[in-house]
Amino acid sequence: MANFFKLLKNENMKIYRRLRTWIMMGLVVIIPALVAVLMAVSTGGDTEIGAWDAFTNLTSLFFLVSIFSAIIFADIVASEFTWGTIKLLLIRPWKRSKVLLSKLLAGLIFSLLLTLIFIVVNWALSFLLFKNISTPGVYPAGYSPFSFNLEMLLYRYVDMVIICIFAFMLSTLFRSSGIAIGLAIFLLFAGNILQALLRPEKYAWTKYVLFTNMNLSRYMIGDGSAAGMTLGFSVAVLSVYVIVFLAVSWIVFMRRDVAA
């Protein structure tokens, strides 16, 4: 356990020394900015949008953070194989399990960083461009604008982490960033459609499907309870999926022969 921090530093170096990463971060600033300006211009005058409402609207752009994070996770193991650098990475005095852990953590740090940038940018835009007035009736009962947005973002973050860990598993499984990114983004967008198609109140088994349990924010307005599903139930199901994804990643990565 000499110095695990150094492994993390390496993974970070490999993320932040790439131009791609800075383009992603730039887009997470620029796209919300454009949308916010458009929103401010188009609603100038009669229909006033409050700062918190603007913030809530802007957070629907969170899918940007999800896609970019998924790309990093999909690439972080696979790229070492495509570059051939895996052969130099795994012949160091570090067990493969720790190398993989450093990659997972570096990915999580990136996703957290991108989320923070996203939140700060959106918050700044909302309060710079829009008046801090309260518009009643927008938020469900029992929520303040702040607590509503915070909880919403937390659920979005959870969804994102699940997609990312799925991408991470595909990355170790197929050693191909392309497949991993493709499937992860498919999951991201198809998830909502599948969620609408799978009716847990009709077919009980669909309660245990990954998509049915994602998008936890629906419990904020009481959706899903029809089939007897609760927030706790979904969290438990999602946890099992995450554990399985991680277990598969670790087992495959630790056992696999590294041949050309």
Binding site: K14, R17, R18, L19, W83, T85, K87, L88, I91
Partner: peptide, 17 residues
């Protein structure tokens, strides 16, 4: 591994570094 240094086939490096 502490005692080994190696190049297995081609020395593949991180090209962007």
């Amino acid at each position: 591994m502490k005692q080994i240094g190696a190049i297995v086939e081609n020395p593949e490096m991180y090209k962007f570094l």
